[in-house]
């Protein structure tokens, strides 16, 4: 286990410590658990609002990233993989965005998660922005796919904080189904 992240005097602590991960898949290459794991890089960990902005300001925006890149912000100790014990019974809300919306929506998503706006206790595991050729995808992972009250609350909060057009399609997928069909989206 990694050492605890220190919150310095004057900083505003977050409810949880988070890890910032980056991954990029070679286009056209079949995604497997093994190469996904190998491509996953831990960039930073943060436990306060100030530490988050310090890293985020130096991070590229989704709009600047090449296709097939993913940024993951997960609670410390949870690896952004379906197989992680926190994720294995979980699932995710998937929001597909047309190009041009991702940077704003992603920032709103992160701020809602760090600020504990979802009000679902420990259910949220993390969030991912996936930059693809024709669209960008935000997904929010939670622990218990079968808990429809929680997943409903997450959907409603997501709709509110992302401020999406009412026509935006949102889809829930269990990680178990993703494992079975070997595809994330």
């Amino acid at each position: 286990p990694l050492p605890q992240v220190e919150v310095k005097p004057g900083e505003h602590p977050l409810q949880y410590t988070y890890s910032l991960w980056f991954s990029r898949r070679a286009p056209g290459k079949q995604a497997t658990t093994q190469n996904y794991d190998q491509n996953l890089q831990l960039l930073a960990r943060f436990a306060s609002v100030e530490q988050f902005w310090g890293y985020y300001s130096r991070c590229l925006r989704p709009v600047d990233l090449p296709s097939h890149s993913d940024i993951h912000i997960f609670k410390d100790g949870i690896k952004p993989m379906w197989e992680d014990s926190a994720n294995k019974n979980g699932g995710k809300w998937i929001v597909r965005l047309r190009k041009g919306l991702a940077s704003r929506c992603w920032e709103n998503m992160i701020l809602a998660m760090l600020g504990e706006q979802f009000m679902v206790g420990d259910e949220i595991c993390g969030a991912v922005i996936s930059v693809r050729f024709q669209e960008d995808i935000i997904s929010v992972w939670n622990r218990t796919a079968q808990d429809s009250i929680t997943t409903g609350k997450i959907r409603d909060t997501l709709k509110r904080v992302l401020n999406l057009p009412p026509t935006t399609v949102m889809e829930y997928k269990t990680h178990n189904d993703s494992l079975k069909d070997h595809s994330s989206f």
């Binding site: 310095k8 004057g10 900083e11 505003h12 602590p13 977050l14 409810q15 609002v49 100030e50 530490q51 988050f52 902005w53 310090g54 300001s57 709103n108 701020l111 809602a112 760090l114 600020g115 504990e116 706006q117 904080v161």
Partner: peptide, 21 residues
């Protein structure tokens, strides 16, 4: 237990904090 909740506007203000580097 108690949760540490922050509003979006507050978090956005903190972006320019001298401690945020």
């Amino acid at each position: 237990g108690t949760r540490i909740i922050y509003e979006r506007t507050f978090l956005l203000q903190m972006r320019n904090s001298p401690l945020a580097k």
